[in-house]
Design a protein around this nucleic acid. Structure first.
Lengths: 194, 194
DNA sequence: CGTCCGCTTGACTCAGATCAAACTTGGTGG
DNA sequence: CCACCAAGTTTGATCTGAGTCAAGCGGACG
């Protein structure tokens, strides 16, 4: 499930808004009103340490749904900020809860969505404990291959891919170069073959 | 929600089994029969790259529920192996699905559990992009503090904590030492004060 | 036509990994 | 109750590979 699907599903109960400048959607401790989604742009979820420094606990990009936990909590547990130029979809908590209660199929879909998230996040987390850049890149690419395939096209940019897997773009490009030199993959543009 | 809760809830439909030696619970492509939980010990979820090397995509420890996605898929997408001496709880997919359909409260609890997982995993992932060992340790500890508290007791060992946050235990101990020297935290045994 | 941004490569640095070893601690079983 | 073993804790020395800074290229887009 993705933002657009949820917008379609909720109809006029969903509201999409564009923020020209950086904007706080909610603060930690605020009563939870909505779950959110990014249509375009980026949002940051933050908490503050005892020492007072900001701590980013999540970065949401186009297509992502975030603050789902609002459905099950009375207050937000972090600050939510959208960056300038971002289009945000708001999904009222009550509307979502109603929908889930009255529509078993939707409830299952939503649950499925979260189970998939858990799966993806867990494997991304394991990925990060692969220290070698080359091995990490190979592993990350392998996980994105469809069963039986050996070729894939990147969704975003290589730079974006680098930050998704926790490497600087320089380290990524060098790793790719070595992998190509070693004959472990070939690529042209955003298409890779392993 | 934790394994024990699910065992209690499912009653005699849940089965707990002890494996003396390493054992494959399921293979990628097998029809999904159950969701699992660890009572004691450890399980590994694995996939294989095109090159044939094993790739750990998740490590489950005591208390963890895993392979939840089995509820929404016809086949497993990875191999599931338990290590020697592990006590595993099996939750039949059908029993769980029935429970979720007939008991709205349980369904909500289960959904809540997954939303919390997503939250935790996302922040752990963000944590990994903090390069400095000291900062990463402080951030990880801060996230484990209860609101308003400044002291906490570790659940597991420091060594376990190190691998949770993606550091070697040596790097962790050295970071802790520097943090203590810098007066940013104090600790005795498994109790820390920030 | 110019600007922005992704891409690519080079040189250098340094923090964390690795290897090694000693010491605690806790639990087990005789 | 003590001997013993396994595992966690702690510190040292060394090394390596990813980060950082820097700079040039090229394509997209207004």
């Amino acid at each position: 499930m993705d933002v657009q699907e949820l917008i379609d599903r909720l109809g006029n109960q969903a509201r999409v808004e564009r923020f020209a400048a950086n904007n706080l959607l909610f603060r930690r401790g605020d009563a939870t009103r909505s779950v959110f989604g990014i249509v375009q742009g980026q949002a940051l979820l933050r908490r503050y340490t005892v020492e007072g420094t900001a701590l980013t606990i999540h970065r949401a990009f186009a297509g992502d749904i975030f603050a789902e936990a609002a459905l099950f909590s009375d207050v937000y547990h972090c600050d939510g900020e959208v960056l300038a130029g971002t289009h945000v979809a708001q999904f009222p908590k009550l509307a979502l809860q109603n929908l889930m209660q009255n529509d078993q199929v939707f409830a299952a879909t939503f649950c499925h969505h979260m189970a998939s998230q858990v799966q993806r996040l867990r494997s991304n987390l394991e990925l990060r404990s692969i220290r070698s850049a080359e091995d990490r890149v190979m592993a990350a690419l392998s996980l994105r291959l469809r069963e039986g395939q050996s070729r894939l096209e990147l969704n975003g940019t290589w730079k974006g891919f680098a930050s998704e897997i926790g490497l600087t773009h320089e380290a990524l490009y060098r790793a790719l170069k070595r992998l190509q030199a070693g004959g472990r993959l070939t690529r042209s543009g955003r298409v890779v073959e392993i």
